[in-house]
Design a protein around this nucleic acid. Structure first.
Lengths: 194, 194
DNA sequence: TTGTGTATATTCACTAGACGGTATACATTG
DNA sequence: CAATGTATACCGTCTAGTGAATATACACAA
C-alpha cells in the first residue's frame, strides 16, 4: 500500500526510537530498524538521508514529550515547590523500576557521541537538557525563589546524576535520595527568599 | 626481544586506556589498540582473551589511581569537610577544562554497556563507583557527621551528574555549582551533628 | 661448552560476518 | 507521462577473532 508516506516515516521513526532506547544507537543497525519497521532498508534511506539523520530525528521527537512528562509530574504533586520537585524525582524512581527502563535516552546518546560534539543528535540532546533547565529556572523564579538559575542547575545535576547512577547500580532508590537533596537545597534557599 | 611479557602487556593496556578514554570502547577497534601499542593483533589476543577482557582490564587498572586522586584533592584542600569536598569538585572542574577531558571513563563505559549488566567491564565500573561512595561515607562518618550514608550518596549523585552534564554542555562551571550544592548539603546536615 | 626440549611470546595471513550505503528496477497514483 | 515510494540485490569496508608457523630464553643433559 503506497502513498502512505507519513505513516511509513512514522513507523520507521517509532521503530528506531524503541530500538535506540532499548539497545543504544551504535549497536542498533539500520537493517534492524528497517526490519522492525517492516520496511526495506532502501525505503528507510528514502525517508532519512543517513543513520545520523535518523538518530537526530529520534531525539528531536522525544524532546517535547519528555519535558511535558516532567511538567505533568510537577503539576500533579501537591505541596510547595520543594515537594513538587521531589515529586518529579519520585516519579522518575517509579519509571526506573520498570524492567525496560534504560536511563535517559538523551544522556546515553550524548555519551555514545561524546567524541562528535557537532553531531546533530548531540545538538538535540544539548537543546533538550537546556530546555528542561530553563523550565525549572522559570518555575523557581515564578515562585519568587532567589538564585533560581543556580538552583535549577543543581537540580539538573541531581537529575542527570541519578540517571547515570541508577543506570549503573540499578537501584532506583538513588532517585529518592536525589529528590531529597533537591528539596533540601530549595528549602535552604527559600528560607532567604528574594 | 622476547621474555618481555610484562612490558608488552602493559604497553597494550596503556594504549587501550588512552584510546578507550579518548574515543569510547565501542568505536575503538582491537586493530587500533594493537597498532597504537606497536604490536600485532595476534599478540594482543595472546595477552587478553577478548576485547571484553581488555575493556575490563582497562577499567580495573583505573580504579585505584582515580580514587587516590580524589583522596589527594580532598586532603590538599584546607578547611572543614564541606570545603574539602568542594575542593574535589573544583579540581574536577580544572581537569574538565583540559581539552582532552572526555568525562568519566567508568561512567561512559557503563553507558556504552548499559544493555549488558553482567559484563565484566560493567562490574568494574560498579565496583569503582561503590568504592568512591564508601570512601566518602567513611570520611563523613569520621567527621562525626550524621546521615553520612545518605550524604555520601547525594555527593556521588552530584559528582556523576556533573560528569554527565559537563560532557554534554562542555561547561565545567557546572562542577563548581555541584561543589557548592554538596557543601550546602554537608553544612545543612552538620548543623545538626550526631 | 654444545646440543636439545619446552614453555613463552610474537608474527603473517586469513576468515566469516556485519555494517552503512547504493544502483537499478518496479509499482502506484494523479 | 511524471512523481513518489518501495523492493531486490549488491558493494566496499571494517571488525572480532583464529590457524599455523616462528623466534626467543632458559633448563638440563652429554
Amino acid at each position: 500500500m503506497p502513498r502512505t508516506s507519513e505513516p511509513t516515516r512514522e513507523r520507521i521513526l517509532s521503530a528506531a526510537a524503541k530500538l535506540f532506547y532499548a539497545e543504544g544507537i551504535r549497536s542498533v543497525s539500520v537493517d534492524a530498524v528497517a526490519a522492525k519497521a517492516g520496511v526495506t532498508k532502501r525505503t528507510l534511506y528514502y525517508h532519512f538521508k543517513s543513520k545520523d539523520d535518523l538518530m537526530a530525528a529520534y531525539l528531536e521527537g522525544r524532546d517535547q514529550p519528555n519535558l511535558a512528562l516532567f511538567q505533568r509530574w510537577f503539576a500533579e504533586t501537591t505541596g510547595g515547590v520543594a515537594d513538587k520537585v521531589r515529586g518529579v524525582f519520585r516519579n522518575l524512581a517509579v519509571s526506573a523500576r520498570h524492567p525496560k527502563w534504560k536511563g535517559c535516552g538523551f544522556l546515553r546518546t550524548s555519551v555514545e557521541l561524546a567524541t562528535m560534539p557537532g553531531h546533530p543528535a548531540m545538538k538535540a540532546g544539548v537543546a533538550h537538557k537546556k530546555r528542561v533547565e530553563d523550565w525549572l529556572r522559570a518555575t523557581l523564579e515564578a515562585e519568587r525563589i532567589g538564585n533560581a538559575a543556580t538552583l535549577a542547575r543543581q537540580i539538573i545535576l541531581l537529575m542527570d546524576g541519578s540517571f547515570a547512577v541508577v543506570l549503573l547500580h540499578r537501584d532506583p532508590s538513588y532517585m529518592e535520595t536525589a529528590g531529597d537533596a533537591a528539596a533540601a537545597l530549595i528549602r535552604a534557599t527559600a528560607a532567604r527568599r528574594v
